[in-house]
Amino acid sequence: MGIKFIKISVCYFVVGVCLGMYMSMTEKFDFTPVHVHINLLGWTAMTLAGLIYVAFPNAAETTLAKVHFWLHNIALPIMMIGLAFLVSGVEAAGPAVAVGGTLMVLGIILFAINILKNVKN
């Protein structure tokens, strides 16, 4: 699972950097919250999870790791698309942000449980 996390995190990094470049070129920074969350939850958090899973393969091969991976990668696009619409003035997008955010929190809690349970000396 570690390599999968690292590889997909690079995709989020490209999206986040391209969004940042777009905002810089247009001097319109409405999507800053989307940019920040993609880079933090997509690039940084997933890269770190991947590196932890590479360092501790016992934790990487658990069902918790697999569920964490899928929850993270389902939640983040839902939350970011919803957030993009929300900051664009579409108030009806609020539930998408809430659903994506809730799934993300669940995925991160499963990651924490997995690390606490399966990462050992």
Rank of each mutant, 00 (worst) to 15 (best):
P57C: 02
G16V: 09
F5A: 04
K66S: 12
V67M: 08
I3W: 14
A45S: 13
E91M: 04
L48W: 08
F31D: 15
V67A: 10
N39A: 07
Y22I: 13
A112S: 15
H72A: 13
L106E: 03
L106C: 15
T32F: 10
E61M: 08
V54G: 08
I6G: 07
A84H: 00
G20C: 07
V90L: 06
L83V: 01
L83F: 01
S88I: 04
S24Q: 05
T63F: 07
M23A: 08
S88L: 05
A112V: 15
L106Y: 04
V34Q: 00
H35F: 02
F31L: 15
P95N: 04
V17G: 13
M79F: 03
V119D: 05
G16Y: 03
A75K: 02
C11R: 05
V54R: 10
A60E: 01
E91L: 04
G100S: 08
K117E: 04
I115T: 15
G16D: 06
S24W: 01
A98P: 15
I6N: 07
Y53E: 00
V17A: 14
L51R: 01
I81F: 10
G42D: 01
F13I: 03
L76R: 03
G107E: 05
I108Q: 10
K4F: 05
V15N: 15
A55H: 14
K66Q: 09
L110M: 11
A59C: 03
H68V: 11
V105A: 15
I108M: 10
V10K: 01
L41E: 01
I52E: 04
T102V: 12
H35Q: 12
G94R: 14
L41H: 03
I3Q: 14
Y22Q: 12
G94S: 11
I74L: 07
L71N: 11
A75N: 06
G101S: 09
L106S: 12
L106F: 07
F56E: 06
H37D: 04
M80Y: 06
T26C: 05
M46Y: 01
L40Y: 05
K117H: 07
T62L: 02
I108S: 13
F85G: 14
I81N: 10
G107P: 11
E61V: 12
M79C: 07
V14Q: 11
M79Y: 03
H37F: 00
L103H: 07
L83T: 01
K4G: 07
A93N: 05
F56D: 09
V99F: 06
G107Y: 03
L116C: 11
K28M: 01
G82H: 02
V17C: 11
N121I: 08
A98E: 14
C11K: 05
H37E: 07
